[in-house]
């Protein structure tokens, strides 16, 4: 039982990331009707926002202290972070919390990037075939990826968890298990909560605001909404920006779990597409549910007991499920009729 719960928890945080990316993909697809292969690149850019913030915060001044010598006989270098010099303890705290702090940078940057991307490129592809959309966004993803690679190198850049959350929580005790049976890192709990908050706020935004209502109306029947005198294109542009922000912050918060490198976006994108298809193209709830479902199943498949029964299952489970779902329920788990059916 405890192993079971542990696997569910392990699956949840990965599922959270899948769900956040898949949500953005579905939003873009449902509103603009565009299949965006560059969405993973947005996740990656978000992650690199955290890298940049960390870099900026830890800019330092190097002084040589001639009075002290190192073992090699050269003067000791004293490194001081500017930020600590200026803000004292608050600066230290800021460095420690660089990952969560990056969100404040990531939100405006991703919003602007998303809007620029939509206005500059995607807009011209509404009327083109889906294959063209896939291809052009695929090209864009390569370009973004290569720029990041040229700038930051090909190696993963690990990001530290804030000191406060670096340990693990023994949550098994809360559920009445013996100590140290169900141990779960704090940061993953944070990530899970974070994913939940983002997901529910996006849903609340769409459900309870006028803007969201117009967007939903536009998803159902774009033309009629346009005839009512609403500039639906502008709203959809903002939705694209929103999707970019969701992917971006998902990337920021994921950095302590998985060190970002330039192809992290592509790795997640392929899986997220599978998630979207399993959930049902165009269904927001389906995307989220499928994200968590596949995350959990993946973590179960990587249990040793399962692996000894079916070797290699952990590598292929997600794809296998996608194949089965598409064949049994062609529209995905919660797909609507008439979406993406030529």
């Amino acid at each position: 039982m405890d192993a079971f719960i542990l696997q569910v928890l392990n699956g949840l945080d990965k599922g959270g990331a899948y769900a956040l990316i898949a949500l953005g993909l579905t939003l873009v697809f449902g509103t603009l009707g565009v299949v965006n292969f560059a969405h993973g690149a947005l996740f990656m850019l978000g992650a690199f926002c955290a890298v940049i913030v960390k870099k900026v915060l830890t800019l330092e001044r190097v002084e040589l202290d001639p009075t002290q010598l190192t073992a090699w006989g050269s003067p000791v270098e004293i490194r001081t972070h500017y930020i600590e010099e200026w803000f004292g303890d608050f600066g230290t705290l800021l460095i420690d919390f660089s990952v969560p702090a990056s969100i404040f940078l990531a939100i405006p940057i991703m919003l602007i990037l998303g809007i620029v991307m939509e206005r500059g490129l995607i807009r011209h592809f509404y009327k083109r075939p889906h294959a063209d959309q896939i291809l052009v966004t695929f090209g864009l993803a390569i370009v973004i990826q290569e720029i990041v690679k040229a700038q930051f190198g090909a190696n993963p850049i690990p990001q530290a968890t804030p000191e406060m959350f670096s340990g693990s929580a023994d949550i098994g005790v809360l559920m009445g298990f013996a100590q140290n049976t169900v141990v779960y890192p704090w940061w993953r709990i944070i990530y899970l909560i974070f994913a939940g908050v983002i997901l529910s706020s996006v849903f609340a935004f769409l459900q309870f605001t006028t803007f969201g209502m117009v967007v939903r109306a536009g998803m159902a029947d774009r033309e009629t909404v346009g005839l009512l005198g609403i500039d639906i294109d502008r709203k959809f542009t903002i939705v694209f920006g929103l999707a970019a922000v969701v992917a971006g912050v998902a990337g920021v918060m994921y950095t302590p779990i998985l060190a970002p490198d330039y192809h992290i976006g592509m790795d997640f994108l392929v899986l997220s597409f599978v998630v979207v298809v399993v959930g049902g193209m165009g269904s927001l709830g389906g995307a989220v549910a499928a994200g968590f479902l596949l995350g959990i199943l993946q973590s179960f498949a990587s249990m040793n007991e399962v692996k000894s029964l079916l070797p290699g299952i952990d590598q292929v489970i997600i794809y296998l499920i996608a194949v089965v779902v598409l064949l049994v329920r062609p529209r995905g788990l919660m797909g609507r009729k008439g979406v993406m059916e030529d």
Binding site: V35, I134, V274, M281, L326, P330, E341, D342
Partner: peptide
């Protein structure tokens, strides 16, 4: 059995 984007995926 599927076409379009589903086939690609």
């Amino acid at each position: 059995r599927r076409s379009g984007i589903y086939f690609s995926i």
